[in-house]
Design a protein around this nucleic acid. Structure first.
Lengths: 260, 260
DNA sequence: CGTACCGTTGAGGTGAGTCAAAGTAAGTGG
DNA sequence: CCACTTACTTTGACTCACCTCAACGGTACG
């Protein structure tokens, strides 16, 4: 379970500033409104315990490029992305960086490290401006110990997150780059695509070619070439990080019948 | 969390026989002695609850090639490998089979599907004769609800399992085949290697070239060639599925300094 | 003794990596 | 506002690691 994309650094964004998580401006709604909330429904929290969670919660904004937590650092809690997009990186067998997966709004990070009680094996980097909330280890453990249902809902969420979404990117790496790219676009489109009338979908990717390439286990040049090829085939229109897919069904059809 | 290698099929081994899990000969020790036991230490189980777990536990043997559970089937519980080796397969974006990871003695299977309350996305196939025990969903959920510490220990085990071991195979697939093979051998050697005096290690791989290739996202021919090349370099001696590594440090050194 | 499958080796093709260079966009300072 | 820097993107030419296809030896099994 948990895969390796864990995390939970001590005051992770130390490189950003010494600002404490609490000092940051907390959005108007003081209550918990991130991914963990879906695990709290139906759980008969006592008022005091709910207050504990809310009190201990920290919220911070990160700029593009900021590290939210870093590999090798001990976990100090659970991170939850409210807005923005985060990339988890790890180091492979020869110690070079490799993108592992994307973490988006409503997703949790740092759980593997938290529950394993081991240092992070990944580094979380903000791809866009991010609003991220943080729950320190102690109250989280205390609440999972007190409320088994909360615990179960939390694990259900984690188990389901990994099941779908971009965890899949990693599993397709034996396919040709073009198919991996299509697969990647399909995932991004599901989460971030804007469908216009006519069926065309526009995705604004918050990743640069280098990062897409790392996710796909490829090189930036190869990604550029694959995109160019899709353009030549009329399956996509790229404009920097904006990609328009005129006919999604035609594009995804290539995954089913991989006849060039 | 959980990665996608989940599982927990209903009477999974239906293709093997209609034998119920309980009908199989249970090894002399009637108590729980598989991977889940490590999660039970220090947990203040009441006698009745411990008995419940033991009573509901099923044990079965599988022959080489048997399916323990299959993709698409709903989870019915948690599987634990006592002995033998199991391969988890999934279907990729173009619906062709791909090996995901190996599951060995003490490891759990089927947890993602169990906790996500979703069908299995993988198929578990016995690579060797396997002795596997099974805990039905209901008592497992009941016990995790009753004993938060048990729950936490269980998740800790799962989180730690994925962190190390062969989950890593998947993450190295952008490296050349030879390095992936070395990485794979290192993992297998740690678990199944027999070290003779002199430092040489002998590993008897229970996988055929085809399966190794699938794990490494490569072709059987390429695996054979990579092994041959390691032999030419004096780093390994292969005899079918027996591989002897005369000097493990020299072999693994290639991962650090990948200068051919 | 044939059938079937696994494992190995060879020959040949190709997808994708490497290297290099030019084009583009974004930020900086005068 | 415009040079200048810097980093990202794209394209081309070349190379090579790996895949494909095919043949052959070994072993198991009926």
């Amino acid at each position: 379970m948990f895969h390796n994309d864990d995390s939970g650094a001590i005051c992770a964004g130390a490189e950003k500033s010494e600002k404490n998580w609490r000092t940051q401006l907390v959005p108007k709604c003081a209550h918990v409104d991130c991914g963990i909330q879906s695990c709290m429904r139906d759980v008969p929290f006592r008022t005091a315990d709910k207050a504990l969670l809310e009190r201990s919660m920290g919220v911070r904004n990160f700029d593009r490029g900021d590290k939210i937590f870093s590999e090798g650092v001990a976990s100090s809690g659970l991170y939850c992305v409210r807005s923005g997009l985060v990339l988890l990186n790890y180091k492979d067998a020869i110690r070079s960086d490799k993108a592992l997966r994307l973490v988006g709004p409503g997703d949790l990070m740092g759980y593997r490290s938290l529950f394993a009680d081991e240092p992070h094996v990944t580094t979380a980097e903000a791809l866009t401006v991010c609003n991220i909330c943080f729950f320190p280890k102690t109250p989280i453990i205390r609440l999972t110990d007190t409320y088994p249902l909360f615990s179960r809902m939390l694990f259900r969420k984690l188990a389901r997150d990994r099941g779908s979404r971009n965890g899949l990117v990693m599993r397709e790496q034996h396919l040709p780059i073009k198919l991996r790219l299509i697969h990647f676009l399909r995932m991004m489109e599901k989460q971030y695509g804007i469908t216009s009338r006519g069926g065309a979908v526009c995705v604004q990717l918050p990743l640069m070619r280098r990062q897409i390439a790392s996710l796909l286990s490829a090189r930036p040049e190869s990604v550029a070439r694959a995109i160019t090829e899709l353009e030549r085939e009329g399956l996509a229109v790229a404009n920097g990080r904006n990609i328009t897919i005129p006919n999604p069904r035609a594009l995804y059809h290539m995954l089913d019948s991989n006849d060039e």
